[in-house]
């Protein structure tokens, strides 16, 4: 099953089981979704529950908030991460805060799905990542899906949860193949050990997990070591417990992320490690992230702006040699 098919299956199942679930966004209905995640749903559930919206992101999220107040379970799709900036008032001032401001009187069972990241030459206004901003907002759950099985289970969880969830997808993952274990009871807030190892803990999420996995054989060969790869899965809350167990075993931490390095999401993980795991670490943590530049169009420049399997290998090997791994 493809990643997008797993998301589609999850949506289909929850819409079939619960009449209050609706999905809304640009081209989610008759067009089938710009990444085909909502394909076939309008034929099954009709235009009232699979709602094609105008190009008005503020309203897509703002209306979803009102639908949730009114007793529905909306799943809003933002066509691409950058467009969500038009909805940030609704996401931060409304979706994240109404519960707290009303002291729990308002409950918002809603999801905003969020394809993002560097795809292929879409340039600066269609390529950015915003998990660092969204995970810094109290009141939002932020899930980041990289694994096909996880995509299915986490999206089902998100829709059925009574909390507002930002569900981040990466645009290059939609055609990733994987198996879904439909009977699994999966905790979406628990980190996934993508590969076990004993000498370096490499933490990542979304597509960078796959890039790290491509880099690992070469890193292990060059350094003569074994890497543990952790897929965070949830960016808020963070499964620090799993990170702690891994770092206690390896004594080394590498963080790999696609967003810009300054103020990027991984800064939180490394800062946590510095505060909580300082005496366990045998080497300074390494952080590999996107450059502090807007994403360029040219393919060579684009690839130079973010970590790639090659740069991840090179940078971890250099760091490892310097630090006696």
């Amino acid at each position: 099953m493809l990643y997008r098919e797993a998301l589609n299956k999850a949506l289909d199942e929850v819409m079939n089981a619960d009449d209050t679930v609706v999905t809304l966004g640009e081209d989610v209905g008759l067009y089938g979704g710009s990444f085909r995640v909502t394909e076939g749903l309008v034929e099954k559930y009709g235009e009232k529950r699979v709602i094609d919206t105008p190009i008005a992101e503020l309203s897509i999220v703002g209306n979803a908030v009102g639908m949730a107040i009114g007793g529905l379970r909306p799943v809003a799709e933002i066509m691409t991460g950058n467009f969500s900036l038009l909805a940030f008032d609704q996401i931060i001032n409304h979706m994240a805060k109404l519960r707290y401001m009303s002291n729990g009187k308002i409950t918002l069972p809603m999801v905003v799905r969020f394809p993002q990241g560097v795809s292929r030459q879409l340039a600066a206004q269609h390529s950015e990542s915003y998990e660092q901003m969204l995970s810094a907002v109290p009141g939002l759950r932020v899930l980041s899906v990289s694994d096909v099985n996880y995509a299915y289970h986490a999206l089902k969880y998100a829709v059925l949860s009574d909390d507002p969830v930002i569900f981040i997808e990466h645009e290059l993952l939609y055609n990733k193949k994987g198996e879904v274990n439909f009977s699994q009871n999966l905790d979406p807030f628990k980190a996934r050990i993508a590969k076990e190892g004993s000498d370096i803990t490499i933490v990542s999420y979304l597509k960078m997990v796959d890039d790290v996995m491509l880099a690992v054989p070469e890193i292990e060969k060059e350094l003569g070591c074994s890497c543990e790869v952790i897929d965070l899965c949830s960016l808020n809350p963070v499964d620090y417990e799993s990170l702690k167990h891994s770092i206690e075993k390896t004594s080394r931490l590498v963080m790999v992320e696609e967003d810009h390095k300054t103020g990027g999401y991984g800064a939180q993980i490394v800062s946590w490690a510095a505060e909580e795991m300082f005496y366990t670490l045998d080497a300074p943590p390494l952080r590999l992230a996107g450059e502090d530049v807007p994403i360029p169009y040219n393919r060579s420049l684009e690839l130079a702006s973010i970590p790639t399997p090659e740069s991840i290998t090179r940078d971890i090997v250099t760091w490892g040699k310097k630090n006696d791994v």
Partner: peptide, 15 residues
């Protein structure tokens, strides 16, 4: 900021 929320609620009520 609350106007789109009211629109969404009206959608829910209609449904």
């Amino acid at each position: 900021g609350h106007i789109p929320n009211a629109v969404g609620c009206a959608y829910a009520r209609a449904l």
